[in-house]
């Protein structure tokens, strides 16, 4: 089955209930991804600290290459919260916006 034919089969069935194609509210997705991203990085950092103490998480610390100042430390966990939220927010917004753009274009 080609991508197109799979999509067609799915479309036919969903159309019985709804003819609409979902639009994503980019702002809302950005917010959700920001919360998830921030919490994820914060929790991972804190978890490693609690489990292995200072010097833990050499691999996670490599994120410092992208997030200036980030390390697996208590201060790093706060920074991670901010960076995670920022990155999540941007990713969510970009995904939502591109999705809507493509949907609009395909219509």
């Amino acid at each position: 089955m080609t991508t197109e034919s799979i999509t067609m089969a799915g479309n036919k069935q969903t159309e019985e209930i709804s003819r609409e194609v979902m639009r994503i509210q980019a702002g809302v997705l950005a917010m959700v991804c920001a919360v998830l991203g921030g919490l994820l990085l914060f929790t991972m950092t804190v978890w490693l600290l609690l489990k292995d103490g200072p010097g833990a998480g050499p691999h996670l610390s490599l994120l410092g290459n992208y997030f200036i100042g980030y390390s697996v430390s208590w201060f790093g966990s706060i920074l991670g919260l901010v960076y995670g939220a920022l990155t999540g927010g941007i990713v969510g917004w970009v995904v939502g916006s591109i999705y809507n753009l493509v949907v609009g274009f395909r219509k």
Binding site: I6, S18, V21, V95
Partner: peptide
């Protein structure tokens, strides 16, 4: 409400969006 809740998620559009984010990322 049903129309909105059951609206189809466009596979191609989500594919392009995630493709751009992961590729560019």
């Amino acid at each position: 409400i049903i129309q909105t809740a059951f609206a189809r998620l466009d596979g191609v559009a989500l594919g392009v969006a995630l493709g751009v984010v992961i590729g560019v990322g």
